[in-house]
């Protein structure tokens, strides 16, 4: 019997697979395809202090082995999410992670405080890496001092474990990780999307209305693996890994690099049932490569 469980701060996972923030809405649409209680956990779409409409369309573009998106954090605001979306997900016996976004320090704190009111949310994913909003977001994710400050403030405000979602759009990912660990982060979530652009030949202009977008999908998997591999050797807090995962083999690769659990994003768009299919395939994949548990595999990629 292969042991898929994983205990992380605030998260008692029966398996290490969760849908990634922004690719799964608040779960309703995917609940029409499978029983969400099969998941290890669920990460909700980002919440901001107030309702946010997001960017103009087109908001997505396909690329070689991936896609660009510039949704712009469209969401109904944290209060509506707590009122209308959290109760739906709470019907399923799985941990809920709330993704917290903002444009200012105050907004991050406001959102984090709001989630204290609900007992159904088990952890926060601090989104300091959204590349698609004009102000805030990404700048908290590219400056280690700002990242540390927002982590500290959110930790002070929240009664939940905080996983800081790191941006790959930096030259020193280890420095960012160490800064937020020192500021009190309970875990890391990595990586968010890479900033990219596609020019449409017909119009000779950027295809996305926002011009730039975040690159996700299989194209970014080697970058995620490299960054997790480097970061894991310099921090003691656990990592939720993400970036181009679509198979159980991909999951094992992330575990070996140092992730303790993983999130699946873009692959949900090709195959809405990809998460349960990976969960079904994972025991055999672990066994095939000589592991009896998920825990056994974590970090084996760099250990002597």
């Amino acid at each position: 019997m292969i042991d898929l469980t994983m205990d992380l701060p605030g998260l008692n996972l029966k398996n290490p697979i969760m849908p990634a923030s922004g690719c799964f809405g608040f779960g309703r649409e995917y609940s029409e395809f499978y029983d969400l209680s099969r998941l290890g956990a669920v990460i909700m779409k980002a919440a901001t202090g107030d309702v946010r409409y997001g960017n103009n369309t087109p908001r997505v573009a396909e690329t070689s082995s991936g896609m660009l998106n510039a949704i712009g954090l469209q969401n109904p605001g944290v209060e509506k999410i707590i009122e209308n979306e959290v109760p739906f997900l709470a019907n399923y016996a799985i941990p809920i992670i709330a993704n917290v976004a903002g444009s200012t320090l105050e907004e991050y704190v406001k959102v984090a405080l709001a989630f204290n009111k609900t007992e159904s949310v088990n952890a926060l994913e601090l989104n300091i890496s959204c590349p698609n909003v004009k102000e805030g977001g990404i700048q908290f994710g590219t400056d280690p001092d700002m990242a540390a400050t927002v982590t500290e403030k959110v930790k002070e405000a929240s009664n939940l474990p905080v996983y800081v979602k790191l941006s790959p759009n930096v030259s020193d990912i280890v420095g960012m990780a160490k800064a937020v660990e020192k500021a009190g982060a309970d875990g890391l979530s990595m990586i968010n999307t890479l900033t990219g652009m596609q020019i449409h030949l017909e119009t000779k202009k950027p295809l996305l209305a926002n011009k730039t977008g975040g690159l996700s999908g299989q194209a970014i998997k080697p970058i995620a693996i490299r960054m997790i591999y480097e970061v894991k050797q310099h921090v003691t807090i656990p990592i939720i890994g993400m970036g181009g995962i679509s198979t159980a083999e991909d999951v094992l690769e992330f575990l070996l690099a140092g992730a303790s659990a993983v999130a699946v994003g873009t692959a949900n768009f090709q195959n809405p049932c990809v998460c349960p299919e990976i969960i079904d395939a994972l025991p055999r994949t672990l066994e095939q490569y000589g592991f009896q548990s998920v825990l056994d595999a974590v970090g084996k990629g760099y250990e002597a």
Binding site: G25, E29, Y53, G54, P58, R59, V60, M67, N69
Partner: peptide, 24 residues
């Protein structure tokens, strides 16, 4: 017609406004 992501209503790629107050 619009460029779509998930195509099932989860990803918010293909929205259209219903008013100027953020409705969609």
């Amino acid at each position: 017609e619009e460029r779509m992501g998930c195509g099932i209503g989860a990803c918010f790629a293909c929205v259209i406004p219903t008013d100027t107050e953020g409705g969609y």
